[in-house]
Amino acid sequence: MNLTISGHHLEVTPAIREYVQSKLERVKRHFDQVIDIAVILTVDNLTEKEKRQKAEINVRLPGKTVNVASLSHDLYAAIDSLIDKLDRQVVKYKSQVQDHNHQAIKHLLEADTPAPA
């Protein structure tokens, strides 16, 4: 798994990098087949003081790419919100993949009916 953390108008400090990596452990615990993760942390130079910190993540999974973004006035709050959203989407994708692998109902019904004599 490749992890890329970059900053736009922001220097990614080791503390921020460690915080993001520790939060991503929760996602890896739910779904371990992650191919690639790209995190982009941004500070927008807006005139209003609200929601200037932005966190985005692109996660490549087998067969799907999950994109999530979060805005907040605090970078750590934006990262927390981002990981919550990403966790919900990864759990949803995992359940879809698991449900898809089950046999179809029509095949189960064919196996239950006895062969004509």
Rank of each mutant, 00 (worst) to 15 (best):
S6R: 14
S6E: 07
S6C: 02
H9N: 11
L10K: 05
T13R: 08
T13W: 15
T13A: 09
P14D: 13
P14A: 15
V20I: 06
Q21P: 09
S22L: 12
S22M: 09
S22T: 12
K23M: 02
K23G: 05
L24F: 06
L24P: 03
V27M: 12
K28V: 01
K28R: 15
K28L: 07
R29Q: 03
R29T: 04
H30N: 05
H30W: 04
F31Y: 15
D32I: 02
Q33A: 13
Q33F: 04
I35W: 03
I35S: 01
I37Q: 09
V39Q: 02
T42H: 10
T42K: 13
V43G: 14
D44T: 15
D44K: 14
N45R: 03
N45T: 13
N45E: 05
N45P: 04
L46M: 09
L46W: 14
L46Q: 09
E48C: 10
R52I: 14
K54T: 10
K54A: 10
A55L: 05
A55V: 12
I57A: 01
N58Y: 07
N58F: 10
V59Y: 01
R60F: 00
L61F: 03
P62T: 01
P62F: 01
K64T: 01
T65V: 05
T65H: 06
T65W: 00
V66F: 01
V66L: 11
N67E: 08
A69F: 12
A69E: 11
A69L: 08
S70V: 11
S70H: 13
L71R: 07
L71Y: 08
L71V: 08
S72L: 10
H73S: 09
H73D: 12
D74W: 07
D74L: 10
Y76L: 09
A77K: 07
A78M: 12
I79W: 01
D80Q: 05
D80S: 09
I83E: 06
I83R: 01
D84T: 03
D84N: 10
D84A: 08
K85P: 04
R88D: 03
R88N: 05
R88G: 03
Q89V: 02
Q89K: 10
V90A: 00
K92L: 11
K92C: 00
Y93F: 11
K94E: 00
K94S: 00
Q96R: 12
V97C: 02
V97D: 03
V97Q: 11
D99K: 04
H100W: 03
N101R: 00
Q103M: 13
Q103T: 08
I105N: 07
I105H: 05
K106W: 11
K106S: 07
H107T: 06
H107L: 11
L108W: 00
L109R: 15
E110S: 15
E110Y: 13
D112R: 14
T113N: 14
P114W: 08
P116C: 05
P116Q: 04
A117N: 12
A117P: 07
A117T: 14
